[in-house]
Design a protein around this nucleic acid. Sequence first.
DNA 1: TGCGATTGCATCGCGTACGATTATTTTGAG
DNA 2: CTCAAAATAATCGTACGCGATGCAATCGCA
Lengths: 150, 150
Amino acid sequence: MPAAQPPLPPPGPKLSEFLCFALYSASHAFNRLYKPLLDELGLTYPQYLVMVTLWERDDRTVGEIGEQLFLESNTLTPLLKRMEAAGLVSRSRDPADERQVRLRLTDEGRALLDKARHVPPCVLEATGLTADEARSLTDQIGALRTTLSR
Amino acid sequence: MPAAQPPLPPPGPKLSEFLCFALYSASHAFNRLYKPLLDELGLTYPQYLVMVTLWERDDRTVGEIGEQLFLESNTLTPLLKRMEAAGLVSRSRDPADERQVRLRLTDEGRALLDKARHVPPCVLEATGLTADEARSLTDQIGALRTTLSR
DNA sequence: TGCGATTGCATCGCGTACGATTATTTTGAG
DNA sequence: CTCAAAATAATCGTACGCGATGCAATCGCA
């Protein structure tokens, strides 16, 4: 009769199988890739995301930007102040509703768009994906985020 | 003859099409999902990842853990000190190579595995994905991370 | 109209991330 | 065997994220 299996503790989960860890580590890998590109623009990665939202549509409130980026004012306020100090945006209370702060691109902030145009193709190339593959993955992950935040 | 197109500035990239932003925001969404689950264990998310690596194999150096998690000692050292203060791990110089610090689970740290077993299935359920779908997405993103970090 | 509830932003504290630097130990070429 | 180079953590400064809380402006309902 074969020896009984030793009562090894059941194994824990394997790190490599964690979807959350794949996202976490890939997100950091993207950050490291962006760093040198954004250093040339004087932006951090979250600051770059704010610029993208403002290049899409200018004159937004803190809340609107936060809705786009899934961030709260406790993160955005200091970040936006640094961007204001860097001369990229202006922050001013909305006269029609003094609770709101409106963000507007300065001329310098608007001009940065042209210097930033090479970034997305450069990043896409580093992913080694075709545009279609990247879009598909982006959509899958976007759908996942929507499911998670419920 | 049709009017000439007005010389609108070419549009910037759309945030929703950014793969990096999908990863970034989904990663944060996972963090928010994990928070209440890990609060019960007294862990933060990166600390949980460290525990997962140690549950897989105990008695690792800071560098080995960093290799698994893609983190450096500047991030890990303070994090591990907090885990030591919480009584989950011990930190001690390797007598055979005094440069290295070896991390070992305490009894309490080992015991936490059982309290943590419900977390992965709970998270998988929140993703709304089947195990196969989750595995496929994990593999795609893992491959992407490998490509990016080169 | 008055006033409590809500909204929108700011502040504070803690815990990551990470570039740059430092200190200590080990390695290895000559 | 020696000493410069490499390896390994730790330290420091800056910038996120975010829970908790504070504060002023607005809203809504009696």
